[in-house]
Design a binder for these strands. Structure first.
Length: 446
RNA sequence: GGAGAGGUGGCUGAGUGGCUUAAAGCAACGGUUUGCUAAACCGUCGUGCGGGAAAUAACCUGCACCGGGGGUUCGAAUCCCCCCCUCUCCGCCA
């Protein structure tokens, strides 16, 4: 959500942002509606002011003990006079009431349209974001790690996992349809291992571990900016008017909704492991093979809520990016960091760095992490504020990044650590989480 | 799921139709006094949206807000209806 006052002053900025982000929104309509809304509000306020002035007089007219009544009688008015005056005022108030009623109906209609329009306004991207139409125009900032070459013909993760008996796509689909899977034995263990490694690293870096709801009210989805644009990506539990989250970012960021924090409580750094549910609507036919694009996965997510200060936000943005990189470095995976272009940014994102990890079966880098900063965008929607040093209320800034998402991260792990005999070497950093095991071999072998 | 109790400012807590512009206390902030701390005293003390004052801070002013939404009334924190949430007990249950 943006500040309407700001939009009013600089509608061109929003128009430009919408064009660059390729997000449809009608700034002109919003401005027109805003003007009308304020005019109606002014009329309503004036009518109510009049009503508030006349109303209390009624109490005096009907109370012979009031000072006003006594004075009126002393001035020679009869009770009949006063009664007539009361009737006249009552009539006047009734008229005002009727006018208020029609104005209120207008105000409600225009207010709803205003709210809907406001929810679609995009946050302008930072100047350092490259301009581009889609992910093909993202800019690679740097490469880390060495992309290996194999002395043998490498297998993809599905072939490897199936032969090792640790990935079972077929039965996953049998139970739950396309884009589902089952991890088994060391596959499940590997999945848990990466999640635990990620959590431990974040906790050691001062993030508070949280266990949070993954089924939330729709207002929370609106507040974090996933609704209304993107609502078709969510699984809804309509009977209960709840939505399954696609990331723990949602409950972590919304944690302090409608609250006022003290400045010295900031920054709030939290981390949560959660299951993530995504419908992948509109992705039909895309990445249909393997564990890359699936309906359900587990993810460790980091969230920072900080002061309303762009420099501070940028500093934390780099910090959460570095946290994710530390995990990939611990796992020994080659990756690159990408500056996501305007056309690939979400509605509320100011800037986004994706980390793409090398995946041999794709013969390219595939997105495994996504670090975003929002400035006030989410905090405004969530009404998440703090009191600054001058005792003034300000909206917080929010940021988030993946720490690790599995099983997608198992793709590079399995494929990069595979051996010629079809076994997979377990990255040293994960061995403590797998009972010290060093290799995954097919069942039946030792 | 059943029964009951309750939701008032940062907190505690009065207030059952019109001198309530929501009392009072605590906390907080500013000040005075004081070897220091504490205490005492004085003052300030909500949020949002408008309007005005040279200004989109802290001055003036209008409106709204007593869990949310409707309704009755000239007038609702107060009366009626629906919903949400919290607590207690019962039932079911990982």
């Amino acid at each position: 959500m943006l500040d309407i006052k700001w939009i009013r002053e600089k509608p061109d900025l929003i128009r430009e942002a919408a064009a660059l982000k390729r997000i449809p929104c009608d700034v002109d309509r919003l401005c027109a509606v805003d003007e009308r809304r304020r005019a109606i509000q002014k009329e309503l306020d004036d009518l109510r002011a009049e009503s508030n002035e006349l109303g209390p007089q009624m109490a005096l007219f009907s109370n012979p003990k009031s000072d006003w009544y006594k004075r009126a009688v002393a001035d020679g008015r009869t009770p009949e006079d006063i009664q007539a005056l009361a009737a006249q005022t009552r009539q006047k108030l009734s008229d005002i009431k009727a006018r208020i009623k029609t104005r209120e109906e207008e105000a409600r209609a225009i207010g709803e349209e205003f709210d809907q329009l406001m929810l679609t306004m995009p946050q302008p991207a930072a100047p350092e974001v490259p301009i581009g139409k889609d992910d093909s125009e993202n800019v690679v900032l740097r490469h880390e790690g060495q992309v290996p070459s194999f002395a043998f013909e490498p297998k993809d993760h599905v072939a490897l996992g199936t032969e090792l008996g640790i990935i079972d796509v077929e039965r996953g689909v049998k139970l739950a349809g396309a884009r589902n899977y089952i991890l088994r034995g060391d596959g499940a263990m590997l999945h848990y291992a990466v999640l635990r490694l990620a959590q431990d690293l974040m906790i050691s870096r001062g993030f508070t571990p949280m266990v949070v709801p993954v089924l939330v009210r729709e207002s929370v989805m609106y507040g974090t900016g996933y609704f209304p644009i993107g609502r078709d990506q969510a699984y809804l539990c309509e009977r209960d008017e709840m939505s399954l989250v696609g990331t723990a970012e949602v409950p972590l960021t919304a944690y302090y909704t409608d609250e006022v924090l003290e400045e010295d409580q900031l920054p709030v750094k939290s981390v949560a492991l959660s299951t993530c549910f995504r419908r992948e609507a509109g992705a039909a036919g895309k990445d249909t093979y393997g564990l890359y694009r699936i309906h359900l996965f587990d993810k460790v997510e980091q969230v920072v809520v900080c002061r309303n200060d762009e420099e501070e936000s940028i500093r934390f943005h780099h910090e959460i990016l570095a946290n994710a990189e530390a995990v990939l470095q611990a796992l020994g995976l080659p990756y690159r960091v990408v500056n996501v272009c305007t056309g690939d940014l979400g509605q509320g994102q100011v800037q986004k760095f994706d980390i793409e990890t090398w995946m041999p079966s794709r013969n390219s880098y595939g997105e495994t992490h996504s670090a975003s900063r929002f400035y006030e965008f989410q905090a405004r929607r969530l009404n998440l504020r703090y009191r600054d040093k001058d005792r003034k209320l300000r909206f917080c800034h929010t940021l988030n990044n993946t720490v690790i998402a599995s099983p997608r991260i198992l793709i590079p792990i399995l494929e990069l650590y595979q051996n010629e005999d079809g076994s997979v070497t377990i990255p040293p950093a994960l061995r403590p989480y797998m009972g010290g095991k060093e290799r995954i071999v097919a069942r039946g072998q030792s």
